[in-house]
Amino acid sequence: MPATRSAAVVVLAALLAGCSGGPEQPTSAQAPAESPAPPPPDSVTLVATGDVLVHQGRALTTGARTPDGSYDFAGVFAPVAGLIGAADLAVCHLETPVAADGGPYRGYPSFAVQPEIVDALAGAGYDLCSTASNHSLDDGFDGLTRTLDALEAAGIRSTGTYRTEEASAEPTIVDLDGVRVGHVAATFGLNGVPLPAGREWSVDVADLPDVEGVLAAAARARAAGADVVVASLHCCVEYDNDPTPAQVAAVRTLLASPDVDLVLGHHAHVVQPFERIGDEWVAYGLGNHLAEHATRGYPTEDSVAARFTFTRGADGRFTVSKAEAVPLRIEIGADAVRVVPADPESSARIAAVLDRRGAVAAGLEVVPG
Rank of each mutant, 00 (worst) to 15 (best):
L121F: 06
T187N: 04
P327F: 11
G285I: 10
P344V: 13
P23V: 12
A120M: 06
G22L: 15
L12W: 06
A197C: 01
A7P: 00
D88C: 04
S158Y: 10
P209R: 07
A342L: 05
A29K: 09
W281M: 06
E152H: 12
V230D: 01
A323I: 12
E345H: 05
E165W: 01
D315L: 10
L262V: 13
V9T: 09
A323H: 03
A122Q: 02
G297S: 05
D204L: 05
T164G: 05
V52G: 00
P109T: 14
D177L: 07
G21S: 07
T172L: 11
L83K: 01
A33H: 07
T172Y: 02
T253N: 03
C92Y: 04
V340I: 12
A246T: 09
A217V: 08
E331Q: 15
A7H: 06
V248Y: 00
A150E: 10
A169T: 13
A169Q: 11
H289L: 15
Q30V: 12
A352P: 00
P368N: 10
N288H: 06
V360W: 02
R356N: 11
E292S: 03
Y298L: 07
L15K: 02
S168R: 02
V76T: 12
T295W: 01
Q114W: 03
T4H: 08
A7N: 05
R5E: 13
E275D: 08
G313H: 04
P38M: 12
E95C: 08
L190A: 13
A64M: 10
C236T: 14
P194I: 12
A352T: 13
D139E: 10
E238Y: 05
A64K: 04
R199I: 08
L16Y: 03
E280A: 14
E116G: 05
G22T: 15
